[in-house]
């Protein structure tokens, strides 16, 4: 049904900076039409990975393929099918927004002027403004318009919403949904690195959590939310220490115990219930909570 060639395929990627392994054997694969999240703490290797996708950095080992091509060999073929929005966009200070778009369009096969007009209107931007007068949020909006108008199949976003106010963030994501996915949404792939996971909760189909340059977990968002959960139990008297088999995290404060787990919630719920709590609740974890449960040092682990 879907194109079997992944939009992105990374196998055992290694990239060192001196003695430091920024990326250390990372693998991931993104099917066309998916919205894929790359989650990790600062310094986890997100930006290095993205730069390897774009051939801005050469891998020391491993393979990188975009649409089945090696970006170091078929650079033009690969880059003509994608757009990249970095976390800090560099403009030529003498450009007006119009000049910037014309400049970008000169490198592209196509440029959707209708979409450009619609997006300028949506963000309430005047094409005659000088790029130096734009706020951080407006710069990101201009960068996003510049990324969408060539009609790429793959949109790579590196920390796109950090430093933006909540309203601008929302509108940014809505524009990605509304405009980037306007035609053939099943062919339009989004690859986003972020630690503002909540913003992208609904958009993300699949994600990898990376830590110290390695993929720790790769999961479908729906599957992850069904698998990871939290139990809260309360007793009428302080129950004494609760030992549980197979929890990710157990936190006990007075009469309450909070248990975070991956997959074996039924079993843990039975273990807790056997101790006769007066209250027992269960909820799924959001992607951000899952990230925190996986990526933080596991103090208080059972």
């Amino acid at each position: 049904m879907t194109d079997p060639t992944p939009a992105i395929d990374v196998q055992n990627l290694v990239r060192r900076f001196g003695a430091v392994d920024a990326v250390h054997g990372l693998s991931l694969s993104v099917a066309p039409g998916r919205c894929y999240g790359l989650f990790g703490r600062n310094g986890a290797g997100k930006t290095t990975t993205i730069k390897c996708l774009l051939n801005l950095l050469r891998p020391d080992a491993g393979s990188v393929r975009l649409f089945g091509h090696d970006p170091a060999v078929d650079e033009v073929a690969v880059k003509s099918r994608l757009s990249y929005v970095p976390d800090q966009v560099a403009f030529y200070p003498w450009h007006r927004i119009r000049d910037w778009f014309d400049y970008l369009a000169a490198f592209r096969h196509e440029w959707n002027h209708e979409q450009e007009r619609a997006l300028l209107k949506r963000f309430d931007l005047d094409e005659h403004r000088r790029v130096t007068t734009l706020s951080r949020g407006e710069k990101m909006q201009v960068a996003l318009i510049g990324a969408i108008c060539p009609g790429p199949e793959l949109l790579i976003l590196d920390e796109p919403t950090s430093g933006l106010d909540p309203l601008v963030r929302r509108e940014f994501i809505r524009a990605v949904i509304g405009s980037f996915q306007e035609w053939d949404p099943e062919r339009r792939t989004v690859f986003v690195s972020t630690h503002l996971i909540t913003e992208f909760e609904g958009l993300i189909d699949e994600f990898s959590v990376i830590d110290r340059g390695r993929t720790v977990h790769t999961l479908e968002a729906d599957t992850a939310r069904a698998r990871f959960g939290r139990l809260r139990a309360r007793w009428s008297d302080i129950p004494g220490p609760i030992a549980l088999e197979g929890a990710l995290q157990v936190r006990q404060t007075g009469r309450e115990v909070e248990v975070t787990a991956d997959g074996n919630l039924d079993d843990l719920e039975r273990q807790l219930r056997a101790r006769g709590p007066e209250l027992l609740t269960r909820e799924a974890l959001t992607l951000e909570e899952i990230f925190l449960a996986i990526a933080t040092p596991r103090e208080g682990r059972a």
Partner: peptide, 16 residues
């Protein structure tokens, strides 16, 4: 699909 996807901030493919 577009309107609901934008409103909920979910992937269009999810609404579809």
């Amino acid at each position: 699909v577009r309107v609901l996807a934008e409103e909920l901030r979910v992937n269009r493919n999810t609404v579809a």
